[in-house]
Design a protein around this nucleic acid. Structure first.
Lengths: 343, 343
DNA sequence: ATGAAAGCGCTAACAC
DNA sequence: GTGTTAGCGCTTTCAT
């Protein structure tokens, strides 16, 4: 039975190597003032005792923890998972550790997470989610934590953000469908109270129609709060009830991919052929656009890039570098697949 | 312009409330020895200065940080994302913060993450991934960090683990297909070097056949390392080349869902009808089994439960509770959908 | 019930 | 080039 030895501290190394504590510290932090000879000795002691400095203790002293907090609505959503992957890659490469929390789309929970991260003395914070609401943003500012917002537009230009032009994206979708000859274009979304991205997409739909001189037809627009982002069953059910009475457009744009898939499922059940009878477009271009049948035309929202850019920007701020742009807008792109066709 | 005030420390509260530091500490930690009157005063000061204790400083003193580290292969994989969601829910409820890292299926990277988490003085560690290899496990034990393994079988019964009986799961899949009249049953997997779960599933395939007195036919078994878990394109390409020359079985079991979808895609291109010509089963029962066409029969691997149970077990250990079982085995279940049918 | 002070593991300022 | 020491913000004895 191996004896349970405590984790060695810097003073144990100092004792082992017969040097002062500060010398060990200097070696560890690559200060060039230590003689090669003692450096070697210290390193040997470190090796021998399997020593690793405590980030906690160091953090208490230096006021930085090499940790950044990530707040997302829902880690299980492949959309956010992809963004987080981008973040993880950059952070890991730059020597930062990620701690994260989910809000499950609740502003209150978001506030709780912010406090929690503040308690943990994160060096910076990323707020990812298209909410309105300044209260939490204000709380971060007040706590003086460097932070960037990703995918959330607020009017305060002071706040560094990485954004996607959601409005333009859907406008271009309308444009694309118009070029295929569609004039009756429907839109599917859930209701938007606090989510600016969802609202902007809807605005893009409206302005897109206007640009093409198409009259807005409320019969073609489905705004339903019970549409779920992470399951299609509910969406399917809802849509079936819609389609009973109404005349359908020749094309639908959905504000998100999963509901678009629910839409396709529902239309399939009602014996509409996609894309022969009705074209369907999603938004986000998640991996599964490729896997379903027909494959789903979608709009590429740069997920990993969003994550990467967010962390890059945040770390630039944290590390006090000069920031060129406080507001980075990433481009979208239509990815044409089988679910859309000429009328 | 608001003055940039520093984060208040406990001594600021003490000063504000005109009490000793230790009294503030006692109030904060709900020690019942403080008089109601001073308690009120302290709380008022806390409120006024918007004070929150530093987890870092507290951690340095108490040796616990209310933080647990999660190591998974790839956060962007919906399978792991789902597991993590289960973990997040439990951890958050119990007041723990999650820090996490991805290994991208590299044992070396896994080792690096372990060190990193150790540096951060996590209270506990969850190792999620079906690898072989004891080196990293040994490293954790040596560092004396409480940990549990999820979905990885090692022969050391001392190590608390939450497992799924992968072998039995595939055995029952063979059984199920046999009951539909299938006698030519194929298997699709990537090669398994370190991943015990993948190996166990393959063993389940073999023993399942044996139980039904079906002879193992190597022509029906595709073991290919270039099959990707997160994209189907590669899989499709590989499979097409396989199918050129060989006679195909009447049913396929895939070791994972995404490759199963790739398989269906490939068979579709070759003009095989699913399930009329060939039945296909996946493994894991990810959300998208429902979304594809035909919907995919799969084996439900209890993802969220795996995460929840793992964290529950870990926190029981961390908090010194008595553990009933060190080895929890979670059940699987076949979910029948459209992709399987009688011969 | 309250307060004073030691000390967790480290860095940084300063002395030698 | 190396050593001594204060102190980061907190908890925890131990006095009072």
């Amino acid at each position: 039975m191996k004896k349970t030895t405590k984790k060695p501290a810097i003073k144990d190394i100092a004792a082992e190597a017969n040097v002062a504590i500060s010398t060990v510290s200097n070696v560890l932090n690559n200060k060039e003032i230590v003689s090669e000879k003692t450096r070697k000795r210290v390193l040997k002691a470190v090796e021998k005792l399997n020593y690793r400095p405590s980030v906690i203790a160091r953090g208490l002293r230096t006021k930085h923890t090499n940790t950044i907090g990530i707040i997302v609505p829902d880690i299980a959503d492949p959309f956010y998972a992809q963004v987080i992957k981008g973040m993880e890659e950059v952070a890991s490469k730059k020597g930062y550790t990620l701690i994260f929390g989910c809000t499950y789309y609740s502003l209150e929970e978001e506030g709780r997470q912010i406090e929690l991260f503040s308690d943990h003395s994160v060096d910076g914070l990323i707020l990812f989610c298209g909410y309105d609401g300044y209260d939490n943003v204000r709380a971060i500012k007040q706590r003086n934590i460097p932070f960037v917002m990703v995918d959330r537009e607020v009017n305060d230009l002071e706040i560094p953000s990485v954004l996607v032009d959601n409005k333009y994206a859907i406008e271009s979708a309308v444009d694309y469908l118009h070029s295929l000859g569609h004039r009756k274009i429907g839109y599917l979304t859930f209701s938007f109270k606090h989510q600016t991205t969802v609202k902007k997409r809807y605005e893009g739909y409206c302005s897109g129609l206007k640009k093409k001189k198409i009259k807005y037809n409320p019969d073609f627009v489905i705004i339903d709060d019970s549409i779920k982002l992470d399951e299609i069953k509910g969406t399917k059910r809802i849509l079936k009830s819609y389609f009973g009475s109404k005349k359908l457009p020749t094309a639908f744009i959905s504000f998100s991919d999963i509901p678009a898939i629910g839409l396709i499922k529902a239309l399939d059940i009602m014996n509409y052929k996609i894309p022969e009878d009705i074209s369907v477009m999603g938004y986000a271009n998640i991996a599964f656009c490729e896997y379903i049948k027909p494959t789903l035309t979608s709009i590429k929202h740069p997920k990993k890039l969003l994550g990467k850019t967010g962390v890059d920007l945040l770390l630039d701020i944290v590390e006090g570098k000069k920031i060129k742009t406080r507001r980075i807008i990433l481009p979208t792109e239509i990815v044409v697949r089988q679910s859309t066709a000429p009328v």
